[in-house]
Design a protein around this nucleic acid. Structure first.
Lengths: 179, 179
DNA sequence: GGCAACATGTAACTTGTTACATGATTCC
DNA sequence: GGAATCATGTAACAAGTTACATGTTGCC
């Protein structure tokens, strides 16, 4: 049920269309909670039914019309209530670690390559985080909302750094085994 | 579809009952892939249908009978095939970071407490990892299978260490904001 | 002419969660 | 007497994924 809240949280920033939200879940908030556009549209329909967002169609020239969703007072209350309740633990599903766990049954060269692919993904993500940090936070006067986002970003950065170091070490360890 | 493979991977170690598997998904392999007992039983039924495991009932005295599942040759092949194909990226769903992202809409004292709870969870997990390391790996002669598990464990340890440091920092940053 | 971006959705299916259901033994 | 552990599952529902479906504008 936290997709609902993640959407509401995005809408506290500004009213958005489903398309905007889908893009947001592919970047920014998507770093902490990922969702496809299909999920977003389905959840928006439910939020509208529950009165937590209001939707209005905006005409546009040269582009298809957008349906813009605005968080309601009840929506804000729902976010506040949710935020006061304990979090569930983040779900963990990592195929790469499961493959390491089964090392003697597994295709080792393929696995080594996959570790490399993953390493590159984390490097890219770290660079993306650095750019966001430079562009929006570094050396700026920040509102409370921005400070919260900066804390989340900081955690993201140190997590990526750690993952990169870990994977580099893992690749070396795996190489040693196959000598 | 990777729950199937995670179960098969567990069964490469030794034949197990659904109950054993459910416990395994609550510890060891559960550190990388979590699943409830309901999911395990459902997936076992499918694996049996697909011929990837074979099941036989074992009578026990004083306890209910167990149904023990053994991985078949086809099961091993399925693991190998899966391992050679690229991994999907691990899913990310972290309510705590979403709450930080929405700091000005959120109940801040409650959030601070939740950060503390999460910090404790990671500390406990780290201790658990240390114990596993001591008991099974440190200063021992390791098979290839064990070396793979050790790599995964090493990654788990450094990830927990990083999370602990990050959360401690986040709690301080959040405290500074509310002064 | 083709592809990317803009924009919204439906349908079918697979996974994951919550609740229910049963029943024996062992330990406190 | 009650709780914990052992042991197996079903059913209903919620969430997530994959594939399908349509149509415009702007750029190369």
């Amino acid at each position: 049920m936290a997709l609902a809240e993640a959407i509401l949280v995005c809408l506290t920033d500004r009213p958005m269309s489903g398309y905007d939200l889908a893009k947001t879940f592919d970047a920014s908030i998507g770093f902490f909670w990922r969702a496809s556009h299909q999920q977003v549209y389905r959840e928006l329909a439910r939020l509208r039914e529950r009165g937590l967002v209001e939707s209005s169609e905006m005409e546009q020239r040269g582009k298809p019309n957008r349906i813009v969703h605005t968080i309601t007072k009840e929506g804000y209350n729902a976010v506040k209530l949710w935020s006061s309740k304990p979090c569930r633990q983040p779900s963990i599903k990592d195929e790469l670690l499961v493959k390491l766990y089964a090392l003697d049954t597994v295709d080792t060269p393929a696995l080594t390559e996959q570790l490399g692919v993953r390493l590159d993904q984390h490097k890219e993500k770290l660079q993306a985080y650095y750019k966001i940090n430079e562009r929006f936070y570094e050396g700026k006067n920040l509102s409370k909302a921005q400070k919260g986002k900066l804390i989340a970003l900081t955690m993201g950065i140190s997590n990526e750094q750690e993952m990169i170091a870990s994977l580099e070490k893992a690749i070396i360890m795996l190489g040693d085994i196959n000598e």
